[in-house]
Simulated assay, not measured.
Amino acid sequence: MASDRSHTSISAWRPPVPGITEVFHAHFTDHAYPAHTHDTWDLMILDDGSVNFALDRHRHGATGSTSVLLLPPGVPHDGRTVTESGFRKRNLYLDGSVLPQHLAGRAVDTPVLKDELLRGRIDQLHTALVHPGDGFEAESRLSFIRERLHFHLAKLQPRAPGREANQLAAELRELLDSRTHVGLSLHEAAATLHAHPTHLIRCFKQTYGLPPHAYLTGKRIEHARRLLLDGHRPAEVATTIGLHDQAHLNRHFTRHVGTTPARYQRTRTGSYPTTS
C-alpha cells in the first residue's frame, strides 16, 4: 500500500511583488513541523482539512476554508495534521513593509482570524500570483490585505474617499493611459500622486466603477484587438501591449472577448459581413 506521503505536494516561488518574500502552497497528510521561527510574517489560509499548532507555547487549531492564520516573525511555533487526510494550505511570507515588527505581540494573542472578507482577498491574491505578469493586480490586492490586517492588529479604520476622489482618479487614469504599454507599479503610482495605495484604488473605483488594474487590462485588450485585426501575430501582440507573454494575453483576452486571440484573428474577412 502506498504511503500517505505519496500524496504530499508542494510548490514555492518568489513573486516580483514588493512585500512578499515567498509564496508556498502545500498538501500534507502526515507532516509535522518542529518548533521553529521565521524572519517574516506567515499569512496562511486552509483550503481543506485541519491543522493544530502551538504559538508561543499556546496551542491553537483551525479547520476548513474560513479562517486566516497569521504567525508573527520571531515567535516559535510548530504545526501538525489532525486527520488522516491532512490539510491543504496556501502561505504568504510577508516582510516588515507589509506589517511592522511592533504588531507581533497582538498577533500572538489572536493568530486565528475569523474574517471572510480577509480570507477572500487572500484567495484572490493567490490567484493573481499564480499568473506571471499580473503584478499590478497583485500589488493592489496585497495593499487591501495589509489594510485589513492593520484593522485587526492596530484597529486602524480605512479612509473613505472624500471630495478629492474624482480629481485623484482622473490623475491616475491619465497616468495609466500614458503607461499602458510599459506599465507601472502601484507603489510608483501612489508615490507619483502622493496618495496611499488603497485610498487611490478606492477613489478610482468610486469614480470609474472598476479598479485600476482592471482598467489597465481593458485598455490593453482593446489595443490587442486592433493589432490582431491588422494581422499581427498573438505572441507579438502580447509583448507590444505590455503583457508578460502569449499565455497571459490568451487568459485576459478570452475573459474579455469570449474567444482566444488566434480564433478572434481568424474571423478577419477584410470586408464588412453581408446580411440576407
Results as ranks from 00 to 15, higher is better:
residue 230 D to L: 09
residue 239 T to F: 07
residue 24 F to S: 00
residue 162 G to S: 00
residue 248 H to Y: 06
residue 75 V to N: 00
residue 207 T to C: 04
residue 240 T to I: 07
residue 218 G to C: 03
residue 92 L to Y: 05
residue 182 V to Y: 10
residue 81 T to A: 11
residue 133 G to S: 04
residue 258 G to K: 04
residue 273 P to S: 12
residue 120 G to T: 07
residue 30 D to C: 04
residue 60 H to M: 08
residue 71 L to K: 04
residue 273 P to N: 08
residue 112 V to P: 01
residue 70 L to E: 05
residue 3 S to T: 09
residue 167 Q to D: 15
residue 81 T to F: 10
residue 266 R to D: 00
residue 47 D to F: 13
residue 97 S to M: 05
residue 6 S to W: 02
residue 48 D to Y: 14
residue 200 L to N: 10
residue 114 K to G: 12
residue 256 H to C: 04
residue 272 Y to M: 13
residue 248 H to K: 01
residue 260 T to I: 01
residue 178 S to R: 14
residue 126 H to Y: 11
residue 82 V to H: 00
residue 254 T to E: 08
residue 199 H to G: 12
residue 2 A to C: 07
residue 120 G to R: 09
residue 273 P to R: 05
residue 76 P to A: 02
residue 206 Q to T: 12
residue 113 L to T: 06
residue 54 A to K: 08
residue 145 I to R: 05
residue 71 L to E: 10
residue 13 W to N: 00
residue 71 L to Q: 06
residue 174 E to N: 09
residue 5 R to P: 04
residue 56 D to H: 08
residue 136 F to T: 07
residue 40 T to F: 13
residue 265 Q to D: 07
residue 221 I to K: 04
residue 128 A to D: 03
residue 48 D to V: 09
residue 206 Q to H: 11
residue 109 D to I: 15
residue 105 G to M: 01
residue 41 W to T: 10
residue 158 P to C: 08
residue 98 V to L: 03
residue 215 Y to L: 02
residue 80 R to E: 07
residue 107 A to P: 12
residue 79 G to T: 01
residue 88 R to L: 07
residue 197 P to S: 05
residue 99 L to H: 01
residue 35 A to Y: 07
residue 211 P to R: 15
residue 276 S to T: 15
residue 32 A to M: 01
residue 47 D to E: 14
residue 90 R to T: 12
residue 249 L to F: 02
residue 253 F to V: 05
residue 101 Q to T: 14
residue 87 F to P: 02
residue 161 P to I: 08
residue 87 F to G: 01
residue 83 T to M: 11
residue 2 A to S: 15
residue 237 V to W: 01
residue 257 V to D: 06
residue 50 S to F: 06
residue 161 P to W: 09
residue 57 R to I: 01
residue 251 R to T: 09
residue 18 P to V: 00
residue 160 A to F: 11
residue 114 K to W: 13
residue 37 T to E: 14
residue 18 P to D: 06
residue 147 E to Y: 04
residue 20 I to K: 04
